[in-house]
Structures are given as structure tokens and as C-alpha cells.
Design a protein around this nucleic acid. Structure first.
Length: 549
RNA sequence: GCGCCUGUAGCUCAGUGGAUAGAGCAUCGGCCUCCGAAGCCGAGGGUCGGAGGUUCGAAUCCUCUCAGGCGCGCCA
């Protein structure tokens, strides 16, 4: 659609040049806007204003020459010059009906694009340590990562979703020790919990489980506590994610990096390339040579590798798997690590633009307008499961996607639960359910939803609101593309709220099912197209599109 | 001190360098004998944190500055 208009404009500029109205050989990049006001047309371009300084002519003069030629296109109703030199293009209605034709024909594939050209993208997200349950912050990352993956796929990328499991190192050992202590407690011993141990109730569950299965940690054949504990936690995480509607393509174990020698191999490669040095008994990676603000330790003086060492091995492995783009979704408190990972990529001789890091800002839960206490020190995180149980999966995911990732999010639990129009998730879902209900009502009255596109029938749609709706439906594909390019899933959320905000007033003002069978059919088709696009958008977000609610 | 993110209506936020800066919530006033009122209509509300600069044009780009959040371990 947009491409067609761009070529019309390019043709008009060429025509103006041949006629001598434009003398230079420059072709500006054609930028098409969807104007905010309908009096500015269906599309608007600033091409003449970009040409003006090159041509040394008044922008309006150039715009006039171009606009006259655009008007001659058979698809164009009229074309006007406005303001400082905008060219406003009004398309013929038949051009817009092609949008409905496209929706009817492609259905749940409407909005799909080939932008990604099948390029392989890896999205790594959540990756919470298997030492405790997922909290709401992880939930936001999960919602963003999953929606982004859906959007990238829809835009033509080949996406692989991965979860990196931190199953090596001290944290897992501490988890094992925490379980051991709880087991002792269960056997009647008085215990004292060290400060850095995991104290949550879930540790008791794991301890009780262990005792039930093996009796004690010394029993023959009993697994190590850290292994038992971390795999129990991981199972719990997996089931939370499944309930949240998220399936990963792969689960990558940190421990496997040690077992297969990848950490050692990565350090060797850095050594060979001369980026490693020894100092004070430790082995360092000279990340400052690649833009980091200080050098980083790979192997500590006590001989143990750092977390960073496994992290660089992991990123080396990701790159060597041949993704054209790797995306990390991290909590905003990790932004300090970005430069050292980029340093690694550069040190290995790759272009670090393959890496995109999306930082997820904090979530503040509100109840009754005041923040829910989330004492970090006590480890009293509100879990994802608690929120999901309280407000439901759909509201939960939708709310996580209502803001840009790098903006803090106030999550109003009361609002998310409320069945009132001010709740945005219901506002959008209601739009879908309402349409399905109208279609059912029409069928009862003997007006079935037409199954095929019919231009003559659809030309009965002559209301201003109908044109606006169709125009918005027609921009869905671009929203998906821009959302994929910018890696900003919230754009789809806003698109859907706008769509619903166009539909509801239309519905209130115009009757769909009337005595006029043609008009009824035409409006049913339009309504169904709205429902189709709403469902497609909601599906990208991982939110259901209910038929009834 | 250095680095990253954020400052837009009372609140929460949208806004690929374009036209008179937009939503939602909250406030106030209306709309169901009629397709789903989980909806609609109307009203008020702004020095886009501030100051310079680039540009025909800046909320958007650059510099400085103020305010808030986060990060700056041989922790994970």
C-alpha cells in the first residue's frame, strides 16, 4: 500500500524533472506520513521541502509541480499542497478497499511481512537463576521477550528463544546448603540461617521433597543437594512460564560451558589474540582496549573463574552459532555489563552491532494507588505467579507491554482486575468479543457474514468513521515492521488500543445489522476485518482474543 | 566522581526532524424500550525540566545545566 504511493510520488518527481520544473538530479528519500488530521489526506510527504534547498526554489513551488502530476494517478482522488510545502494525497476509495480484500484473504496472516528475509535472530530472555521463583520483574522481561519474538517472526525473521540457566557457581551451591539446613530443621535440629542463604518457603518444600524421596543426603544414590534444588527450582520456573504462555526453543546450561571446555577455549582464544594479562595473581581481559572503562578479571587469584568468564564463553558460543542478530533482554540493573560484553565481541573480531540489549526497567506494583511493599533486603519479592493468579494471564501480559521497556512501569493491580472500560486490556478484548457477538446476532437475523471480498458491496461503506477504520487497519503491517525494527513490542499494544478506540465509537454511532441487506453485509465484513486484526495483534502480544467475555 | 536510563496535562504515559503536541486515568456534565454500557458523547486542563545551538522547521538532533532512578567487586 505504502510502497505503491511512494512509487507514484517518485514517478511524479521524475515527471516534474522531465518537464523542467526540477533541474537537479536529486531524488529525496520519500517519507510518507499518516497525517494526524484527515483534512491532510491519507498520506502526506515532505519531499518538496527536502528538495527545496537543493533546487534553490520555494518548497511550495516544487510541491505544486509534483502535486499536479500525482493528481493524474488513477489511484489518487486529489492531491493538495499545504502549509510550508506538504503534499497531501487523498486516495480513491477503491484503493482502500484493497486493505479489506487483503484482510479477508490472508486472515490470521494479515500483517505478516518479509522484512526479516529469514535472517536468524536469537532472543535470550528471563534467564533467572534457578535459586528462587520468578518475580514480577522477570515477568515483564518474559512478556517483552515473548512478544518481541512473535513480532520478529511475523515480520519475517527466523527466531530462536533461549533461556540461559545459571546452574554453575556459588549461587547454586548456596541453594544446596540452604536446602540442607532446612532438612536439618525438619529433622528437629535447631538451625541458624546465615545472611546470604535463601530463606524462602519454597526451600522448605524442596527439603521436604528430598527427604521424602531419598531420606537423607547421605543415602546411597541420592543426588547432590545443589543439583536437586536447582532442578526443582527450574521445573517450577518452567511451569510458571508455561502457565504464562511461554515456550522456549532452547535451554542453555551455564555448566555445560565448563563441561565442554568452552570457557577455557574462549580464554585461550583471547590469550592468543593478546587481550589477556596477569596481574596480582589473577588473569585479566583487557576490555579497556575495546571501550570498557576498566579491565575485567577472568580467573581469580584463588583459581576460580568469574561469572564474567562463563558469560563471554556463552556470548562467543551464541555468535558462532551463526545468528545474524542476538538480542539480550536484561534487567536495567545490568546495564553496566553491556560494554564488557561488547568488548568481548570486538576482541574476537566481530562487529558488535550483532548484539542488541534491551533493558527492562522496574515494575512497581500498586494496590489502592499505593506501592505494594517489595522489600529487596528481606527477599520478599512478589512472584509472577501471585500476580498471574490475581489478575489473570491476559491482563498481566498486556500490562507488561503497555510501556516502553526502558520506562518504569506502574502496574495497578486494581485496574488490571477491574471489569470497567478504563481497563485497557478489556477495552481491546471487548472490541473483539463485541464484534463476534454482532456477527452471531446478524446470523440469527438471517444476515450471514459474507465469505468473500466484494468491491461493489464494500463500496457501500461511505461513512467517515469507516474510512478511518480502514485506514488504520491498513497500517497494521507497518506497525509490525516498525515494532520489529525498533524491537519495541509496546507499539503493537498502542496500535490495538487505537484500533479499539476507533471501533467503539463507530459501533455506537452506526447500526451494523439493519433492514438494508447490502449495507449490513458490508458492515459485517468491515467489523470482521477489525476483529481479525485485533486478534492478530493480541496474538503477537500473547494475549487471548475471546469470543465472549 | 564516571557511565546508562528517565523528565511531555493533576496522575500514568504515547509521540521514525514536520502542520494547532496526543491518549488513558482522575474531575465535571450527559447517553441503555433498539446489534454486548467491559461501551459512547461533551467540558476543562500544557513555558514538552531549564538554557543555548544546528535547521526552512526541534518534544525529537548537539552542547551545557537541574532533578529522579540504576550501575560502577578478584560478587553472582
Amino acid at each position: 500500500m505504502k510502497a505503491g504511493v511512494v512509487s507514484i510520488i517518485k514517478g511524479a518527481i521524475e515527471g516534474a524533472r522531465e518537464a523542467g520544473a526540477i533541474t537537479g538530479g536529486n531524488m529525496p528519500e520519500i517519507v510518507l506520513d499518516k497525517p494526524k488530521k484527515e483534512e491532510f489526506g491519507d498520506f502526506s510527504t515532505n519531499a518538496a521541502m527536502l528538495l527545496a534547498p537543493l533546487e534553490k526554489k520555494a518548497p511550495r513551488e516544487i510541491a505544486k509541480a509534483i502535486s499536479e502530476r500525482i493528481s493524474q494517478s488513477p489511484y489518487v482522488e486529489k492531491c493538495e499542497v499545504a502549509g510550508p510545502g506538504f503534499i497531501n494525497i487523498f486516495l480513491k476509495k477503491t484503493f482502500w478497499l484493497a486493505v479489506l480484500e487483503d484482510i479477508i484473504k490472508t486472515g490470521e496472516g494479515y500483517g505478516r511481512s518479509g522484512l526479516g528475509k529469514g535472517h536468524k535472530v536469537q532472543v535470550e530472555f528471563v534467564s533467572a537463576n534457578p535459586t528462587g521463583p520468578l518475580h514480577v520483574g522477570h515477568g515483564r522481561g518474559a512478556a517483552v521477550g515473548d512478544a518481541l519474538s512473535n513480532i520478529l517472526k511475523f515480520a519475517g525473521f527466523e527466531v530462536s528463544k533461549e533461556y540461559y540457566i545459571n546452574d554453575a557457581g556459588r549461587q547454586v551451591l548456596t541453594l544446596g546448603e540452604s536446602v540442607r539446613l532446612r532438612m536439618e530443621e525438619l529433622s528437629g535440629k535447631a538451625i541458624e540461617f546465615p545472611q546470604d542463604f535463601y530463606k524462602g518457603e519454597y526451600i522448605k518444600d524442596i527439603a521436604a521433597d528430598y527427604i521424602e524421596k531419598y531420606g537423607s543426603a547421605d543415602a546411597p544414590g541420592a543426588p547432590r543437594l545443589k543439583d536437586f534444588g536447582s532442578s526443582a527450582m527450574l521445573e517450577r520456573i518452567k511451569s510458571d512460564l508455561r502457565e504464562f504462555g511461554i515456550e522456549f526453543d532452547s535451554w542453555f546450561s551455564e555448566r555445560s560451558l565448563d563441561d565442554t571446555g568452552m570457557v577455557a577455549a574462549t580464554i585461550d582464544e583471547l590469550k592468543q589474540k593478546g587481550h589477556v594479562f596477569e596481574s596480582e595473581g589473577a588473569l585479566w581481559f583487557r576490555t579497556t582496549a575495546f571501550g570498557d572503562d576498566k579491565d575485567r578479571v577472568l580467573i581469580k587469584a584463588d583459581g576460580e573463574r568469574t561469572y564474567f568468564a562463563s558469560d563471554i564463553a556463552y556470548h562467543r558460543n551464541k555468535i558462532e552459532r551463526g545468528f545474524s542478530s542476538i538480542v539480550n533482554i536484561w534487567g536495567a540493573d545490568h546495564h553496566g555489563y553491556e560494554n564488557r560484553i561488547r568488548a568481548l565481541i570486538k576482541a574476537l573480531g566481530y562487529d558488535d552491532s550483532v548484539l542488541k540489549i534491551i533493558f527492562i526497567q522496574l515494575v512497581a506494583l500498586l494496590r489502592g494507588g499505593v506501592p505494594v511493599a517489595m522489600g529487596k533486603r528481606e527477599g520478599e519479592f512478589v512472584t509472577l505467579r501471585q500476580v498471574m493468579d490475581e489478575v489473570g494471564k491476559d491482563a498481566c501480559r498486556f500490562f507488561f507491554l503497555m510501556r516502553r521497556s526502558d520506562a518504569q512501569l506502574d502496574f495497578d493491580l486494581d485496574l488490571a482486575k477491574s471489569q470497567a472500560p478504563e481497563n485497557p486490556v478489556y477495552y481491546v478484548q471487548y472490541c473483539h468479543a463485541r464484534i463476534k457477538s454482532i456477527i452471531a446476532f446478524a446470523a440469527e437475523k438471517g444476515s450471514a457474514l459474507p465469505t468473500a471480498f466484494d468491491a461493489a458491496l464494500l463500496s457501500r461503506l461511505d461513512q467517515k468513521e469507516e474510512a478511518e477504520l480502514i485506514r488504520h487497519l491498513g497500517s497494521f503491517g507497518e506497525v509490525v515492521e516498525r515494532s520489529a525494527e525498533a524491537m519495541e513490542p509496546h507499539r503493537v499494544t498502542f496500535y490495538l488500543m487505537d484500533l479499539a478506540a476507533l471501533f467503539h465509537p463507530y459501533y455506537n454511532k452506526n447500526r451494523v445489522v439493519t433492514d438494508d441487506p447490502e449495507l449490513t453485509s458490508a458492515r459485517l465484513l468491515l467489523c470482521n476485518a477489525v476483529a481479525t486484526v485485533a486478534a492478530n495483534g493480541l496474538r503477537l502480544l500473547g494475549v487471548s482474543a475471546p469470543e465472549k467475555m
